[in-house]
């Protein structure tokens, strides 16, 4: 479930202003992605970002991690270069299924902010729904939750880490070529 690395105890209360700013930042980020402004989205990431989407493997509750050969599996496990590569693919104009234009809609909600041991970094949890509409009625949707580390920098908020959890095991979609 939650990534152990990210389970950090709050070290200080989060100010109302910071929490408000983080909420606004996530809404803005979602809109940048909805509008397919990928180069601008890349600017919202730190150079050392780690972006992961683990597979929700369906084992029995009693199954202990490491007790079988079912090791963690990631659908996405990218640093900045990998994310840029994905963004570059979108920008080639050669991804035929995005023409006619794809319509994207992201809803980000249930935002919870915690401080971390690093003063300018915050653990931010959120829930999302993402909808993608293509052509006449090629509609796909995914729901899940995210655990982010947001870093406050002189240039503004930046995403330093993101773990995306989908609720689906079998991906019911032709692809997950999108950012969450």
């Amino acid at each position: 479930m939650a990534n152990a690395e990210l389970k950090l105890a709050p070290t200080a209360p989060v100010s109302f202003e910071q929490e408000y700013a983080i909420g606004k930042f996530l809404s803005m980020e979602a809109r940048v992605l909805d509008e397919e402004r990928y180069p601008e989205w890349l600017e919202l990431l730190t150079e050392d970002i780690r972006y992961q989407m683990p597979v929700a493997i369906s084992t029995y509750r009693r199954a202990r991690q490491g007790s079988t050969t079912l090791k963690p599996l990631f659908i996405i496990d990218d640093g900045f270069p990998g994310l840029k590569q994905r963004a570059d693919r979108e920008a080639t104009g050669l991804v035929w299924l995005n023409d006619p234009a794809t319509r994207h809609l992201r809803i980000i909600t249930n935002i919870e902010v915690e401080t971390t041991d690093t003063p300018n970094e915050f653990l931010v949890r959120s829930k999302f729904m993402i909808f993608r509409g293509r052509r006449d009625k090629d509609i796909a949707s995914h729901a899940g939750w995210r655990e982010d580390i947001l870093r406050q920098t002189p240039q503004g908020w930046r995403i330093a880490r993101r773990v995306v959890h989908l609720i689906e095991r079998v991906v019911i979609d032709k692809n997950l070529n999108m950012f969450f």
């Binding site: 990631f74 659908i75 996405i76 299924l97 070529n177």
Partner: peptide, 23 residues
């Protein structure tokens, strides 16, 4: 493992194209 994920995982750079014409 990285390459398999990157190319033909569900979010793979190549995987995403094929489902479309197959459909």
């Amino acid at each position: 493992h990285d390459h398999v994920r990157q190319t033909f995982g569900p979010a793979g750079l190549l995987e995403g194209d094929d489902g479309d014409f197959v459909e």
